[in-house]
Nucleic acid binder design. Sequence first.
DNA 1: TAGATTGTTAATCGATTAACAATC
DNA 2: TAGATTGTTAATCGATTAACAATC
Lengths: 228, 228
Amino acid sequence: MGGDFKPAESVPVPTLRRLPSYLRLLRGMKGSRVWVSCTHLASALDLDPTQVRKDLAYTGVIGRPKIGYQVSELVERLETFLGWQTVREAILVGAGNLGRALIGFPGFARKGLNIIAACDVEAARIGGEIHGRPVLPMEQLPALVARTGARLGVLTVPEQAAQQAAQAMHAAGITAIWNFTPVRLVMAGVLVEDVDLSASFAVLSHRLTRQDRGGAPTSSGVSRGEQR
Amino acid sequence: MGGDFKPAESVPVPTLRRLPSYLRLLRGMKGSRVWVSCTHLASALDLDPTQVRKDLAYTGVIGRPKIGYQVSELVERLETFLGWQTVREAILVGAGNLGRALIGFPGFARKGLNIIAACDVEAARIGGEIHGRPVLPMEQLPALVARTGARLGVLTVPEQAAQQAAQAMHAAGITAIWNFTPVRLVMAGVLVEDVDLSASFAVLSHRLTRQDRGGAPTSSGVSRGEQR
DNA sequence: TAGATTGTTAATCGATTAACAATC
DNA sequence: TAGATTGTTAATCGATTAACAATC
């Protein structure tokens, strides 16, 4: 009855993308510092202090004027807010070069990401292990998802196989896909986040091209990439 | 004298990031189609037609009302605009899991990216080959850059080594770094483009967390990731 | 011709940045 | 206390989206 419903005001994507960099910095100073200010974080990351303050506010943390924020609390808040405190099981689909690299990535543990198995269609890959994780045939994906309760999938198949593989993942019960292929997956009811190497390289390559042609570099020499 | 200098109006980053997806689609239809409209591209990629039109206009292409754009011309324009028609030599620094995967990436050739060698500090890796590319000691980077003329570096070292490695690359003559580490490199005079896996995973993870907690999904089930 | 599409200008939307009172 | 810092509101900036005349 108290019509004071907050519409879950969704967090801006740029903010979400900056949060991990704060967390990384804060984890590094956890032993040596008790308090930290936005000013400090901002200058370390070359950002605007107000922006940092607004970003942090989304986590619900409350700072003290003149003092700043408690490092330990901020770390905790960020981890909780990002969902990095609970371990999340994931299945990787496509055990090629990139897939193998991701399975072996040490940093994922700190983000609550645990890739427990891989699936592939190539007979030569099936039955083996990558960094201690089994590689299973694609047909076993539904059973695997059912058995492990994994809801997250990491998609690292070749471009041509992407849409079909994503469909299979959805059918198997996967509800979120971390998509490393350049394909815009057409899927309703599945949360998709793209890691688009082509897009990133496009920015770099275009600017390099202008640079080569004697394009006027910024005063600071050259500007840096976006997508912070 | 004719004071009609166009200040090289810089291309918006979101536009640059979308261009590769147009190109990918167009390459796929090169044989079967002569003309293509923004409407068509937009619906295939789930974008706004006006946005596609504006994006394409940056390449200098001119379309025909009622007809659209010539596929072959558009492909050519996009490739030139992105700088993907000239081969660019690159040195990879950090021959770990991710580095090895990138060296073997078949798609880079179509983007004019040629990783010709890798550098690393680990003795066990030095002297070997990865996908036919030699792995050299880090000390040889300056000589390597001088000899090959490579200006682009791909940075895939562990987080702790990132800043130092980047400095070494700069000193060796590298002018642009494709940065796969989560570290915000502090560098003047070097073009840096970040591929930030942490940032991407943060978006996914945060949304998954809301989803778990019974957060209201969109009408379409669940929305998809940004950074298109 | 009528309808689809381009190119372009205007309106909207959302994020960043600036301004400033409150506070320890 | 004075100065630094937070929290918040307002102004700015830039990208997306809408509107519409020109065109084949």
